[in-house]
Amino acid sequence: MDSMVITSLTVSLIAILVIFTVLVILIYTIKLLVHFIPYEEPPTQKSTSAALPKTSPSSVSPDIISAITAVMATHLGKSPQEFHINQINPK
């Protein structure tokens, strides 16, 4: 039993080392990729907002608002604190 526990500890240690090694390699690979292939702003498109039915954010769940805020922040390249969602237009 004791030897099994020691073996399991050894396996755990080796496995954690392997996982961290693999993921650290991935981290540096990603950093290299991002460094050599930087993001380029897509050409701006004309807004085509049509008259859609409006929904107050208060009627939408906080999960949806946080998801939309997070995606908008990523898209606009702004902090979520820099803008506020006033209305949501469902499709």
């Binding site: 693999v22 690979t29 990729l33 991002v34 292939i37 993001y39 990523t74």
Partner: peptide, 21 residues
């Protein structure tokens, strides 16, 4: 705020992960 990522990086990433891992 997270930085935007190039679409090319997003395309290369799964190929690189497959090869490395």
């Amino acid at each position: 705020q997270l930085k935007p990522i190039s679409q090319t990086v997003k395309i290369i990433f799964p190929i690189v992960v497959t090869i490395v891992c």
